[in-house]
Design a protein around this nucleic acid. Structure first.
Lengths: 204, 204, 204, 204
DNA sequence: TATGAATGAGCGTTCATTCAT
DNA sequence: GATGAATGAACGCTCATTCAT
């Protein structure tokens, strides 16, 4: 039974991994179940043994990625590092995972409007995705807050700084419209953010 | 003749307006030509007298919105205001128009990957959308640059600040995941951005 | 009035000429009224002032071509030539006009099954096309018959020879599947036909 | 597995049979996939599991019919009969199958101009249809050639006679415009052809 | 008479989902 | 559980035909 459960878990994950690949390449609508099944090396019908429909795959993929992210962020938070060092680690991690330009379309927060969600799926979304996102934001906010307490960071509203932090990462995908060297710009944006965080001089 | 021309212009715009409504509500893929036609109060076939296909409607809508935005930004840039006042005006304008949460999905920079663009349409995209976006970024960058010259703003890289500026506006759509009063937060984010811009005076 | 009538006749003919071009290039179904109108340098709607619908254009084109053919055949028949010379002239004429490979698809005798003919149009077909074709066959049959009477031709059933004559011309369009030099074959087929017609030896 | 394979073969053939019926009745353009599916007693979408598009169904139908024809012709060629007897058998076979008036429109050699063929389909056509047609012509030519060698037939160019042979069969479909009893005429045309083939004996 | 913008029925094709095996 | 053949609703697009000007 446990074995069965773990086999199922494995197949479920196979599908989610495949879905990640295909959704990232083609977007939700142009991705087909057949492609996902092929990528997962299973039959099309099998997908429906693990997920009731296409949006559900998407939502569970989001949930999984957000959960992984949350876990990693908690790890980083627990490390013995300065707040800035933690944030820098998170910046790098997020820009390589969740907010990688390649996945940008996956993690638009408006997905739920664009995808038709049956009532059941909608509640899955509300249960699985929204809370995770809130927790991620909360973790970052707590690190920023700690940084402020420790006078590592300037005294801005930590909630707002968190939004700004995420926006900064997401803005990396705008760079292509900008006449800047790509890698320079990625680092430069990061440095700009931390420059902003720095407290001013002695009297500050 | 002029009347005819203006009637045609009107119908084309009717369609684009309808498309804006429908695309914003449903996204590119769930929007149907029939719905757009209904919204525009014309027949389905009529749409194809003005646009060769669905992606073309989308691209021309983007182009139109970007053009309106560019025009407005140029106006604001030309006004007799401080750079900060100009940027504040632009912030408000963009958050009410292009980066309105409702339209957020329209203006993801990844559209061209998600939508299948035939070669013709692809070149329409490259001709009509990308340059406009670059110009908009350029206008903002020039205002920021002027502000720096005038010592209104701190001396950061104006190109990066422009990205941050836009990201800040876009981050407004993240707020719903955040336990903050909606309007408070919009203002607060704006204020945060301008706080960042402020130069550290001696007395600072 | 007569002038008007002649203007109308001219425009009607303009349309039929254009239709000939377009139908020959694209076939009945892929040809569009718009293309025919363009080719005739008139507006799409104008076509409908002269013909009630698309099949009618086609049928009237057939009728016109068949009528021209009939006229030419009557001329040839009336010339002071041997029957063989007349047939040779007709062979050349038909293979350059009605049964030109380019027009082959126009003059399949099964058109009326393939094209949807309303009852009105169907009767137009029966009135205008079928009788013309019969007359053409009759003219050729008469020439062959004369040739037989004059002992120029062997004594076969002239009706059958007429069918064979037409088939021989039509078979030119099969040549492309055949490993033969194109022009050689056209002439060779003609010569074969007349070889067949030749009476055998003295005692024949 | 073998069963599966044979089931698929059956369904593919079901579709081709249905397509034969519908194309013959309505022609390529007026035939709809839905009708073909209905005729085959399957759903519309199922058709697309076996053929990529409509032209492909048509081409594969042609290919199948031509292949059947080729096979039958090879059988007849191998029988112990005189060349004339073989040709008579072939004449009857072809006039009941490939060149049956009902199917005449299917087997016009101009199909490839009239139907829009994507590049893939075009190469399918060139691979599957043209060579088969050439082989059929070749088989007939060989029989005629044998007849000439055996002095059964008069010494005409066998390639041309083959064209004439096919044309004669195809000319059967012209008969309806001709004031002749239908069956009489079919036989009469056949006899005419063989009359032509007969060598002129000494006493001739 | 002439126009061409507008119409909308119709069709080819896709693909999420089902279900018999 | 696993399969993949089968389904059919849905949609983009075409084009013959109409009609207001």
């Amino acid at each position: 039974m446990t074995k069965q459960g773990s086999i199922e878990e494995t197949k479920r994950n196979q599908i989610l991994k495949a879905a990640e690949e295909v959704f990232a390449q083609k977007g939700f609508f142009k991705a087909t179940i057949e492609e996902i099944a092929e990528q997962a090396q299973i039959a099309k019908g099998t997908v429906y043994l693990y997920f009731p429909d296409k949006p559900s795959i998407f939502i569970n993929l989001l949930a999984k990625k957000l959960n992984e992210t949350k876990m990693r962020l908690l790890e980083i938070k627990a490390e013995t590092l300065s707040s800035e060092e933690k944030l820098r680690k998170i910046f790098d991690y997020l820009s390589k995972t969740l907010f990688k330009p390649k996945y940008a379309q996956l993690f638009q927060t408006h997905s739920e409007k664009v995808i038709t969600l049956t009532n059941n799926i909608m509640s899955e979304f509300k249960e699985k995705v929204t809370p995770q996102l809130k927790e991620i934001i909360k973790i970052i906010a707590e690190i920023i807050n700690q940084g402020i307490k420790d006078r590592e960071f300037k005294k801005f509203d930590p909630k707002l700084l968190t939004l700004l932090f995420i926006s900064t990462i997401r803005s990396l995908s705008l760079r292509k419209f900008y006449p800047l060297n790509y890698h320079y710009s990625a680092n430069a944006l990061k440095e700009l953010f931390f420059e902003i965080l720095k407290p001013r001089g002695k009297n500050d």
